[in-house]
């Protein structure tokens, strides 16, 4: 794991440098593509593109997380258990739908631009988070639940103090999958008119300007990798925290002490 520790800051440095100072690479791309009169994408700055890209992903992932958490909690409560099979099946089948196809289907519904991209990203992001929430809440051991009941926890307290903390790693894994897919799909969103880091790639492919393609691809690849590394760190921190604190162990111990 030491190698990862060195790799991530280097990638972050490369990402920040490219996002801020892409025009400075003009001599390099000019040398690489001598017959290309415009070797650097200048229609929008790469900082602007990165921010637009991040905005698409943040809005859709945030809304999808809130929605998926709500639905996931509902279908694992006694009141909503009836809906679990159909919701689980929808989440499973929905994930076999290609993200690019969902993006394409949003065009007939909403036209071109940011709106259909956001809709597609939101709809697709729900599914992995929903699956993670349901799996995480189901993975809470029955004895922990019973111990919480035995302590007289209300169902709301049990949910927020016991079940959600224990399900957090699964939920976070779902959010991670969703976010990485959303970053990739937002890149393709440039084909339906959304401004994102995919814009230089799509324009470069259309105009046969390989330099644009390379620039967009490099920055968006670094962006996706860094976000993924961020989630990795978050997951490790969460694992460390639950090892040292063990929210489950408190009621367990208390229940054991209460037993005759």
């Amino acid at each position: 794991m030491m190698r990862v520790g060195l790799l991530t800051p280097l990638l972050a440095l490369a990402f920040v440098a490219l996002a801020l100072f892409m025009p400075a690479t003009a001599p390099f791309f000019h040398w690489l593509f001598p017959e290309n009169p415009r070797p650097v994408f200048l229609r929008a700055s790469f900082l602007e593109l990165t921010l637009a890209h991040a905005e698409l992903v943040l809005i859709s992932a945030g809304a999808a997380t809130a929605f998926a958490l709500g639905v996931g909690i509902f279908v694992t409560r006694p009141a909503g258990r009836e809906f679990l099979p159909i919701v689980g099946a929808l989440a499973a089948v929905g994930q076999t739908f290609p993200p690019a196809a969902v993006l394409a289907l949003a065009v007939p519904a909403l036209g071109y631009g940011e709106a259909p991209t956001l809709l597609a990203l939101f709809l697709y992001s729900i599914l992995p988070i929903l699956e993670g929430t349901i799996a995480g809440l189901h993975a809470v051991p029955a004895d922990v639940r019973e111990a919480a009941d035995g302590l007289g926890f209300s169902s709301a307290t049990k949910l927020t103090r016991i079940e959600l903390p224990l399900a957090a790693p699964y939920i976070l894994a779902g959010v991670r999958t969703s976010t990485i897919i959303a970053i990739g799909t937002a890149t393709i969103g440039s084909t339906i008119g959304a401004l994102s880091l995919g814009s230089p790639i799509v324009e470069g492919l259309a105009a046969e300007n390989t330099a644009y393609v390379l620039q967009g691809a490099l920055v968006v690849a670094l962006f996706a990798i860094l976000v993924d590394r961020g989630f990795e760190l978050l997951e490790r921190r969460l694992a460390r925290q639950s090892r040292s604190e063990l929210p489950a162990s408190r009621p367990r111990r208390a229940a054991a002490a209460a037993a005759p």
Partner: peptide, 28 residues
């Protein structure tokens, strides 16, 4: 083990259109 999974995970993270794009230059 760890090197293989780190590398493959890195590849999996790269958006599809970007990986296609990154392969265009060396292949041409």
């Amino acid at each position: 083990r760890s090197a293989i999974f780190t590398t493959l995970n890195l590849l999996q993270t790269i958006p599809s259109i970007a990986l296609f794009g990154l392969l265009i230059a060396p292949l041409s």
